[in-house]
């Protein structure tokens, strides 16, 4: 009985979550230029098309650049914030945590409008810098939470032990806290990267034609011409996300193993 419920719910959930994706993805290999079934043949031609078209490669490259920049900035901001917060008292810790996490809970359209307005006033609109900044602000809370979790999991006696051996606060942070919280930083970094990599709403408001990111290109591609190239791009995006998720899973496993000891 319990087993059958388990299998029914698992299958239903998987179907619900993955079926739409699985239905579309084979069309990336279809020889027909229409997005329809039945498939007429198998080809990698559309992949060639995507990598051959400057509009797609430029968008891919833009996305990678923006995501990498946003990730670096988010790790810096979120990591510092989490480290600082652990040094404060309990009440201040709660207030600060709520503040740092707030970009996640505000609707993205609101955030997007705010960014567009603010960067417009600052004369930054359309630039890489504006996209990197905006995505960093969206990614920082994820880094913050992930780093905070791994810092809280550390045995406070480790820091005390290092202090008793004469290590300054900076030395302790550099040689004890940081290496042990590294899985948290890495997971946060991956989160931040992927958040930026498939972010649409804010990018839609901020990106100029020359700084267009992949999701935006995909979006306009959908409106212009429905072609298997779009599915190819979607497939690539999903693959990147999947890879990062797997990496994160590995990281968490290692982090758990480290904090168990």
């Amino acid at each position: 009985m319990a087993r059958s419920i388990f299998w029914i719910s698992t299958v239903l959930c998987l179907a619900f979550l993955a079926l739409p994706l699985l239905l579309v993805l084979p069309l990336a290999f279809n020889t027909s230029s229409f997005l329809t079934y039945p498939m007429e043949g198998f080809t990698f031609a559309w992949f060639g098309e995507v990598f051959g078209q400057p509009s797609w490669t430029k968008a891919i490259w833009n996305s990678v650049k923006v995501a990498a920049g946003a990730m670096a900035l988010a790790v810096l901001i979120g990591g510092l914030a989490a480290t600082g917060v652990t040094l404060t008292g309990r009440v201040l810790q709660m207030v600060l945590s709520a503040l740092f996490v707030s970009p996640v809970v505000v609707p993205s359209i609101v955030v997007a409008v705010a960014f567009a307005y603010a960067f417009g006033r600052a004369g930054l609109s359309g630039s890489y810098a504006s996209l990197v900044l905006a995505h960093a602000i969206l990614g920082a809370p994820l880094v913050f939470l992930s780093v905070l979790t791994s810092l809280r999991g550390l045995d406070p006696d480790l820091d005390r032990a290092a202090a008793s051996m004469g290590a300054s606060r900076l030395h302790r942070f550099r040689h004890v806290t940081l290496p042990l919280a590294a899985p948290g930083f890495l997971a946060g970094a991956l989160f931040a990267f992927i958040t930026s990599f498939d972010e649409v709403v804010v990018a839609l408001f901020l990106a100029a034609p020359e700084s267009t990111t992949l999701p935006i290109a995909l979006f306009s591609g959908l409106r212009d011409r429905l072609q298997p190239t779009i599915v190819v791009v979607a497939l690539l995006l999903s693959l990147v996300s999947l890879l990062f998720l797997l990496a994160m899973g590995q990281m968490q496993k290692r982090g758990a193993a480290a904090s168990r000891n």
Binding site: D157, R160, A161, M165, G166, L180
Partner: peptide
């Protein structure tokens, strides 16, 4: 504490899990 020059053995030992035994002892 870092300027008292006192050695401490903790109830849970508080050994650094990311360092070898030798590196733990070399730390101070």
């Amino acid at each position: 504490p870092e300027r008292r020059n006192f050695g401490l053995v903790f109830q849970g030992y508080a050994l650094f899990p990311h360092m070898t035994v030798a590196d733990n002892i070399a730390y101070p």
